[in-house]
């Protein structure tokens, strides 16, 4: 469980959002939707302590970020990594065990096995020895998901994890996320495909430089909220058929 209170973040002078309060429940997959530049990634980075905040606090079931940090997995939206770095797929996934190993301990057999198993879950076990620049964009994204799996985190935050991933892999990753939800973990997924909202998420946060709405998907995913966050046109397109049917 994760509670954000009075959070204000600004990059320059004008805040991206001010006084945001929002709540993410354990045992649920919560989606975050909103137009480009709405502040979705900013909210996540603030939660993770990666950017300076003007005000506000984040509470992790009564604990502070420092206390739970190791139990959070995060898949970034867009990574500007050096793909020529001398590291192969298995070793990249293995870095997911660094947090719990702590200083001065090296990953051993158990960790390597865990990394291999995670790669198997995302269907990349044939690629363990590949240097990372020799992967397709979608494959690389799946490697980062595998690293998040290896972290065995209680809280998992994925910022548009499905961009560039094929439908089959997307389904496989959703299956993994569903298993974790059932195991009581807190899952937060920023997502762009509004058609999937009802299918994928239990709860939903709609953002546009602030929180427009939050709560169970059935209550929050409405024509009115989509209109407020995006536009009336989009809302009409998405909800036209539904409302037409009910009318």
């Amino acid at each position: 469980m994760l509670t954000v209170k009075n959070l204000t973040v600004a990059y320059a002078d004008t805040p991206v959002f001010a006084d945001v309060a929002v709540h993410f429940n354990a045992g649920k997959i919560t989606g975050i939707i909103g137009p480009n530049g709405a502040g979705k990634s900013t909210l996540i980075k603030a939660i993770l302590g990666l950017i300076k905040v003007q005000s506000g606090a984040v509470d992790f079931s009564g604990k502070t970020l420092k206390e739970v940090q190791q139990a959070i997995a995060y898949v970034e939206q867009r990574k500007d990594l050096d793909l020529t770095f001398p590291i192969n797929v298995l070793d990249l996934v293995l870095t997911g065990t660094y947090g719990r190993l702590g200083l001065l301990k090296s990953p051993g057999k158990k960790e390597r096995q865990a990394a291999y198993d995670a790669l198997e879950q995302v269907g990349l076990e044939a690629f363990t020895k590949r240097q990372i620049s020799q992967l397709s964009g979608g494959q690389l994204q799946r490697v980062f998901v595998a690293r998040a799996i290896v972290q065995q985190a209680d809280i998992m935050i994925l910022d548009e994890p499905f961009v560039g991933i094929d439908m089959k892999s997307e389904q496989e990753i959703m299956t993994i996320l569903n298993q974790w939800r059932d195991a009581g973990k807190t899952l937060i997924v920023v997502h762009h495909d509004l058609n999937k909202v009802s299918n994928y998420f239990d709860e939903l946060v709609v953002m546009n430089h602030g929180i427009i709405a939050e709560g169970p998907v059935e209550e929050v995913y409405t024509a009115r909220n989509i209109e407020r966050a995006f536009s009336a046109d989009l809302s009409n397109v998405l909800f036209a058929t539904k409302e037409g049917a009910s009318a």
């Binding site: 993770l48 990666l50 940090q69 190791q70 995060y74 970034e76 660094y98 947090g99 972290q151």
Partner: peptide, 8 residues
């Protein structure tokens, strides 16, 4: 960034 998120 990843190193930061796990508290290093």
């Amino acid at each position: 960034t990843f190193a930061k998120t796990y508290g290093l």
